[in-house]
Design a protein around this nucleic acid. Structure first.
Lengths: 217, 217
DNA sequence: AAATAAAATTAGGTATACCTAATTTTATTT
DNA sequence: AAATAAAATTAGGTATACCTAATTTTATTT
């Protein structure tokens, strides 16, 4: 079995591999985990020995088959627990990520599958992230952000790229959730800020960083 | 906040204090946790500095007010999660203890209370152990064991003192669960084995260790 | 291509929570 | 009370997963 730290490394590496096709460097992992690069180099050696990852200076860090399987299970548990916390226990959107961060490490062979069944086999978590199925398959992942929407066009919020509570609380304040319709009214040439209409009602201006953090369908 | 190890020490000390009035020695804690006594002495110093416990060679280890509060919350979470695992996820009696052992350490201020509400404020966990209320109060704890029942008398199983899967699987095999009526037919003078009638049907002989592990009402 | 900057790595160190072996203290037996 | 046994403690050590500072390697700029 994997230690808590190993699980966090696996998760970080998995996320980096999902985010882009760029090679995964020790520095990137260090940044993702808030660790020192020297620590990451230590851990890369341990995890390579354990055959969870492969490391080649040219190709960067890659998950082995076992590492990928383990990562997906952690992500699956994380996202299922998020659904549970929101739907069953009534936690708020911005609280569930940190709790799921602990719950995802609870290890039991049938826990994820039982939880999945209990929750009615949800496809997406409350942030719109796809929940890996028991066989490891991922439902469609959203990749187009609000920043990519043409001026004048409309879309619906499908997922959020940022799970920080400051971002989520901002969304709540604006009345934006998964499924909320948004129309792009104007694009400010200076800094790519967007003037948007939320839910066919309120009009606001949001920054580029904001619009890049929202995935749409 | 307390570390994982500290939480396990707190829980062990709390359990020992519940089990009997005997003073809690480093050796007793070492045995409860499966640690070396030298390690326990180390940890006693740390936890004393943190004001979670007090240690006096004459009086043994005692929980401070803070230590008691923390211990009760851990026990509360453990037992609530056991109810969840059995009732909501359909785990078996003998599987839930080990999983709850991990879940109990998930820390969030309102998690226990929300889980409690979701489960309908259960008073006892699936092993018959009382679930501490949000205010720290414990429902009535069962203390009379099957070994104390007079020959010829009847009783109902209220709780089990042993949560090992070997014991619980034995109970399942015998058709005994919480609430099962048991009549003591005969007491073997030689080794205090009991001949019992289960659920007014099957008759079996059980050892003294067995009958001491069952609490009745 | 040389100079410079950035990334990766090595060397050596830390806190946590354990351990064994040796010693000291306390309790029990004779 | 002395002898013995048990418990508690100290001294010194380990693996894990981090760290900083120094060095080496690789990439980028001039």
């Amino acid at each position: 079995m994997n230690t808590l730290s190993e699980e966090n490394y696996l998760k970080a590496i998995f996320r980096l591999s999902q985010k882009s096709d760029e090679k995964i460097t020790p520095t990137a992992i260090a940044e993702a985990l808030g660790n020192n690069a020297a620590s990451v180099v230590d851990m890369i050696r341990k995890m390579t020995d354990k055959e969870l990852i492969e490391y080649d200076k040219k190709k960067g860090v890659r998950l082995t088959q076992q590492g990928l399987k383990d990562s997906i299970l952690i992500v699956r548990k994380h996202r299922l627990w998020e659904v549970f916390l929101l739907e069953k226990l009534g936690f708020h959107w911005d609280e569930i990520h940190d709790i799921a961060e602990e719950l995802e490490h609870v290890s039991n062979a049938s826990l994820a599958d039982r939880l999945d069944k209990f929750l009615g086999f949800p496809e997406y978590d409350p942030h719109g992230d796809p929940i890996p199925k028991a066989n490891g398959k991922l439902p469609k992942t959203f990749t187009v952000s609000l920043a990519d929407v043409k001026t004048g066009a409309s879309c619906k919020v499908a997922a959020v790229r940022d799970t920080s509570s400051s971002f989520l609380q901002y969304l709540v304040k604006l009345g934006i959730g998964i499924g909320t319709p948004i129309q792009v009214l104007e694009r400010i040439a200076f800094d790519q800020s967007l003037v948007i209409k939320i839910n066919e009602q309120d009009q606001t201006t949001v920054s580029q960083r904001f619009s890049e953090s929202i995935l749409i369908s």
